[in-house]
Amino acid sequence: MPKDPLGLAYVNNKRSLLHKMSPVSKIIWATCIVFLSLFTGLSGLYILLVLYLALSAFLLITQAVPLKQFIRPQLLLVPIWIPLIVLSSLTLAYQTALLGFSSTDVGAIRLLSMSIPYSKGGFLYGVAMLLRGTNIALAALAIVWTTHPRDLVYALTNSFHVPYKISWALFLGLIYAPIIAYETQLVSYAHSVRGIKISHWNPFQRGIISKYLFPVLVRGLRRGSTTANAMEGRAFGAYPTRTFRYGVRSSSISKIFAVCAIAFTAAYVIIFWKQMNWDPSSIIKTAGTG
């Protein structure tokens, strides 16, 4: 059985609540989470944390995804987000005039005999981006874990009326990702047997583009050419609409679920109006008060 090292594969558990939902209701639900994550201001950081915990609990309690697969892709996000907090705290301290921060924004950390300046606004901005990014990623992953790619294309074509040529391109994209990964592995093996040493940990090593990008591009395009012939053989694009062999079965509570998500978002906006991030300069205000 092929392994899923990144934890991004579809989880085949049709008994879970999210698996029974229609893809449309899940897209609406995820959009609401993305909206709440992006527009919750810096003064509402605790709300972002609560949203993350609630989302995690919902996914695990409804058994939409096993704990191991739930953790794996999120661990990949840690090295991405943690440096943002550190970097923005340290570097924005030197750009306070450019950013319009007040002089009280800059604090100092005492380390041995050194005094390192840091920006409070930069720290808050880093934490906010960490929480926003994690919430958005989790909402997107919830769709991937619980929706078959075929059902996603069906929903895009039939419910959102996306031209099927374009939704088919997205479907093909999800299928092609492991194929391109496989081609990259083949190129890597070909270099190894010729005695060329390539480090898998250093993306900036010399000649990486000519050794990897060009061969993978050519091999990928040649595979693409074969796929195109197969698609044309099946009359791809000959008719404006497309008949699907399989329909999407969804639970009757899908609509209720989607309506509840929209209602919750609306209620949230009304109750926490002041903590929403409508004003683009909110970081400056927050930093200014700190």
Binding site: K165, W168, A169, L172, G173, I180, A181, P203, A228, E232
Partner: peptide
């Protein structure tokens, strides 16, 4: 004239671009 070959080329380059963004996005 957007046909199967265009879809295939778009997908292949899109996925390679996504693979590049694994490093470039962070």
């Amino acid at each position: 004239t957007f046909g199967a070959t265009d879809v295939a080329v778009a997908v292949v380059l899109g996925i390679i671009a996504r693979a590049f963004m694994l490093i470039a996005s962070p």
